[in-house]
Design a protein around this nucleic acid. Structure first.
Lengths: 326, 326
DNA sequence: TCTCATTTGGCAAACGTTTGCCAAAGCTGT
DNA sequence: ACAGCTTTGGCAAACGTTTGCCAAATGAGA
């Protein structure tokens, strides 16, 4: 299958000019007679012509590529988002270019500029980090949608869940279950997502008669949420009050908390129940002790696509909040 | 930052022709005087010129893009491979385009032809599936490296571990530990990787006096290895002999086996120890009961790059087997 | 000073598209 | 038969790059 078939090949075979073929390929049916169109279509079929995306991008000054920057592909949730977004984009005729920023601002900027040079059509920022390049690009009005974490600069369409509400839902559950000593484990330098979950949780508890001061709060630092959970748990378990229910703002934090709990000889959920926000399908298999608010990461892809489409067509860019499920 | 700076911009500013600038950008230092080179370099710096990859690809008929097809991004091992490969390629000046084939031949072919149209420089097939498009492309001699699973057609450079040896290593361990009733859990329609692991395991056991017929073999079917393990375990546990050590050919299979074991009231590793081949870092946190042969997925990226480099420079394409660690 | 080789650099033609503009042909109504 | 409009389609110029070829300028040797 020699792939050196271009508009010229088709034009020669159909006995028309390349302009005509180009127009027909692009659906400009009003610029050619029905007979010509049929002849060209046949020729296209016969030689197996496929438009060359590179030539097209050069001329149009815009490619079919959408760039996706993800903070950490090793995080299963982000991998799922990447996978579903790739599928959605592909089915709409776009291709996705994926970059792993490792949560580093400098890498993020490198990737942004490389992608821009590729004339990408849009950017999908999954858990972006604040950076100069991002701010610039955003200010220029580049098509950009933020997933999981909101835009550092504030404005920018967002795909995710209502993090505050999710936190509040866990609070409600704890109260309804009659928990005496609720706690929360979260990362020291959290993103908008983890922060909002904690805030929603504490706010709802306060509304229902449990002021924030009475809630055991454990924060952890470290690169991975596993480590964060492990550290946060230490603080929580060595607090004066013994917690009987802990909100972990992500699955991985819950894994870390649980490990520390085991090391301390605590039974989960016997002595202390763990609730997390994420809901990886893996939990059912490796963490049956964990109750989780399930986030439909698998559905993120189509929302991202819808959001990009809205931007491209000039509609108002609005946030897309997906339903979570307890 | 208006990004409409091209060779023309630089040429005008430096007072030379675009040919000269192009040659200097591409390191053809012998085609211009030192003074000219300096002047051009300054101009490049001043206007912030970056070569346009699209124009370049069109002219060179070859882009800096490397296409990566992965069977399932939700699999943490593959996500890690994708991440490390992306990093390695990026640091060598390439960009990676990632596609998730969901292990489907038709999608794989779609992606292959889309990537080819993008004039990609090479293909990285992570756990590829046999397909017509793959066979054609491979026959044409497209630069292609196979990761984790060997080329369906046989020939093609491979990056992975020595799967038979890994299986054998587990066999040795079982014998050395004095296990009475070893078993193995594996997928019904396995890849070259899982097949080789089982073969290596059984062969070594046979060498050391345990003919294959005496080994409990449980195969499972299903989309995910979790399910495979769950099914395989059922067969293994309901066999006449009660196993006291099971080789699970992947981490996820081990998770499935363990779940079934729990349901049957078996203690792991008390009643029966589990050994898997994969070694996800997550194991330490969520599956401390699992012993694993650790595969250095994080190091795959650089090997993939090295393999591609070998192909591009015309060297003999050889397999790259990485060391595993018990 | 002349010849010849080397250095230095520009011209122009590609690569595969898209699209503004022009022109030929076909129609309509007078 | 003629003006004017619509349909149909081609020409050619871009988009940003690379590169074969040619030419001017420089330098060396005679």
């Amino acid at each position: 299958m020699p792939e050196d078939v271009s508009l010229t090949t088709v034009a020669a075979r159909a006995g028309v000019s390349i302009s005509t073929v180009s127009r027909i390929v692009n659906g400009e049916t009003r610029r050619a007679s029905a007979a010509t169109i049929a002849r060209v279509r046949d020729a296209i079929e016969a030689v197996g012509y496929r438009p060359n995306p590179v030539g097209r991008a050069l001329r149009r000054r815009q490619s079919q590529v959408v760039g996706m920057l993800v903070a950490n592909l090793d995080n299963p949730a982000m991998a799922t988002i990447a996978s579903s977004t790739e599928a959605a984009l592909r089915s709409a005729g776009y291709v996705m270019m994926l970059c792993d920023t490792h949560d580093r601002a400098d890498l993020q900027d490198d990737y942004l500029s490389a992608l821009r040079a590729q004339l990408v059509r849009g950017f999908v920022m999954v858990a972006s980090v604040p950076s100069k390049g991002l701010a610039d690009l955003s200010a220029e009005g580049a098509p950009m949608v933020f997933v999981t974490r909101r835009a550092p600069a504030g404005r920018g369409p967002f795909v995710g869940i209502d993090d505050r509400a999710a936190g509040a839902a866990v609070a409600d559950r704890f109260i309804d279950e009659g928990r005496r000593a609720p706690a929360v484990a979260f990362p020291q330098q959290g993103s908008s997502a983890t922060r909002d979950r904690v805030l929603g949780f504490l706010a709802r508890l306060a509304e229902r008669g449990r002021p924030a001061a009475s809630v055991i709060q454990g924060e952890g630092s470290g690169l991975s949420h596993l480590q964060v959970g492990y550290e946060a748990a230490e603080k929580i378990f060595s607090a004066g009050d013994k917690p009987d229910a802990i909100l972990c703002v992500s699955d991985q934090i819950a894994y870390g908390v649980r490990r520390r709990a085991l090391e301390r000889g605590l039974d989960v959920p016997g002595d202390c129940s763990l609730v997390s926000i994420d809901g990886s399908p893996l939990n059912k298999w490796v963490a049956p002790w964990l109750v989780s608010v399930e986030i439909p990461y698998i559905a993120y892809g189509q929302e991202v696509l819808a959001s990009l489409n809205a931007i491209w067509t000039g509609s108002a860019s609005m946030d897309r909040l997906l339903p979570y499920r307890f």
